[in-house]
Lab assay of single mutants.
Amino acid sequence: LLPSFEIGAWTEDDVYCWVQQLVRKGDSSAEMSVYASLFKENNITGKRLLLLEEEDLKDMGIVSKGHIIHFKSAIEKLTHDYIN
């Protein structure tokens, strides 16, 4: 489970856990499981996660359009939940 809904306070480890949970919950393929490490390697914290754009995801090595859409949708939901 994630430490809190205060996404802005999430550490790199918290984001890593979130990506792992996202991959487990989704209908995503096994190749998506490597993405948790990509987020950690790129020092993505909660604040940075909320700022990620499609180009950032591509720069991190996420090239599948479907996977990018999956992440963007999940990040938008997080942003919405965080604001409300």
Score class of each variant (00 low, 15 high):
L1K: 09
S4H: 14
F5W: 15
E6G: 06
I7G: 01
I7Q: 05
I7T: 02
I7F: 02
W10C: 00
T11M: 14
T11V: 07
D13N: 05
D14Y: 00
V15G: 02
V15F: 05
Y16K: 09
C17N: 12
C17H: 13
W18Q: 00
V19L: 07
Q20W: 08
Q21K: 08
Q21G: 11
L22S: 06
L22I: 14
L22R: 01
V23R: 11
V23Q: 15
K25Q: 12
K25I: 08
K25C: 09
D27S: 11
S29H: 12
A30W: 09
M32I: 10
M32D: 04
M32V: 05
Y35R: 02
Y35K: 08
A36H: 00
A36L: 01
A36R: 00
S37I: 04
S37C: 06
S37G: 10
N43C: 10
N43A: 08
I44D: 06
I44N: 02
T45R: 00
T45F: 06
T45H: 00
G46L: 00
R48P: 03
R48K: 14
R48V: 02
L49S: 01
L49K: 00
L49W: 00
L51P: 00
L51T: 14
L52V: 05
E53I: 00
E54L: 05
E55P: 07
E55A: 10
E55G: 09
D56Y: 05
L57W: 00
L57A: 03
K58M: 05
D59A: 12
G61H: 05
G61K: 02
I62S: 06
V63T: 13
V63S: 11
K65V: 10
G66A: 15
H67P: 00
H67L: 07
H67C: 07
I68M: 05
I68H: 01
I69R: 14
H70C: 08
F71A: 08
K72L: 13
S73F: 06
S73T: 13
A74R: 03
K77T: 08
L78D: 00
T79E: 12
T79L: 08
H80S: 11
H80Q: 13
D81E: 12
Y82P: 10
Y82N: 12
I83L: 13
I83M: 14
N84Q: 15
N84P: 13
N84K: 11
